[in-house]
Design a protein around this nucleic acid. Structure first.
Ligand code: MN
Ligand code: MN
Ligand code: ZN
Ligand code: ZN
Lengths: 137, 137
DNA sequence: AAAGTAAGTGCAATGGAAGTGCATTTGTTA
DNA sequence: TAACAAATGCACTTCCATTGCACTTACTTT
């Protein structure tokens, strides 16, 4: 089990106070978050810094981006050992129409999708919408 | 085979010059289009009119919206007899990473997706990204 | 330890897309 | 033709994403 500092170093990301805080914030969330969510959690920090921190994390495969169809880009920490590989790490996302939260279903890999002749599939975005477990009980 | 006028009437949409033109524009496209695409095709018309026409078509199940992950909402004509029903009319969309075009694969219905206990699936958005048939040959 | 360099942060501004209020025009119906 | 309702055009707004530039902080080298 490595510390956050070790993780960042291993990915060639400089350790700064802001980055540690943002990492911890993401780590304790089970749901995916928007930039505004992060902004609200760190009112003293500038929006741009948060934005660029997330982009850095994204480039280094620490965070992945989620398009859940709400029109607002969302982000979540990758799993341990994730390399954002299309074959092994691509998973399903669930958006709740009731509480409006989106979560990663990292255990649910995306099934093989057939495409017509001549088409080459490189990547798949799969979002299921409905009622989440918290809202359905 | 009904005329466009008949189709619009059957859906309780008033026939106007603009609506006929936009319908024809959509009908001759094989790919899905953005509002900007329509705007460029009808430079004399106001953006708002085009916007509201599309929204009207959407409400009446003549057009469906596509979120292909580019961040820009796209639209396409529905198939003959489509009622935008989740069970029967929901289909796959393909986005080409090369030419940046997106098309409806109306023959490719969306497979049943398993979700964890407690979750209820109501709707699915499935976008495959890769190389389209025109670009791959 | 001090200087020098590269990276990170904050502020201000921009741009694109989506959406709305209201006045004007057009079409439908009595 | 008069009256009414819907469609269109214009102006404006909001929201999110993104960038340029100045300043600050962290790392490296002497
Ligand atoms: Mn995820
Ligand atoms: Mn479609
Ligand atoms: Zn919920
Ligand atoms: Zn293509």
């Amino acid at each position: 089990m490595q510390t956050i500092e070790q993780l960042l170093e291993s990915k060639d990301i400089r350790i700064t106070a802001m980055r540690l805080l943002i990492y911890k914030f993401l780590a304790e969330k089970e749901i995916v978050v928007t930039l505004s969510d992060i902004e609200n959690a760190f009112e003293k920090a500038d929006r741009t810094t948060l934005y660029r921190t997330i982009k850095t994390f994204e480039e280094k495969d620490i965070v992945h981006q989620i398009d859940d169809g709400t029109g607002i880009t969302k982000y979540a920490l990758c799993e341990q050992g994730c390399s954002c590989d299309i074959k092994t790490d691509l998973h399903l996302h669930f958006h709740c129409n009731n509480c409006n939260e989106t979560i990663c279903l990292t255990d649910h890999k995306i099934p093989q999708i057939k495409v017509p002749d001549g088409f080459v599939s490189e990547n798949v975005n799969l979002v299921v919408k409905g009622i989440c477990d918290k809202c359905s009980r």
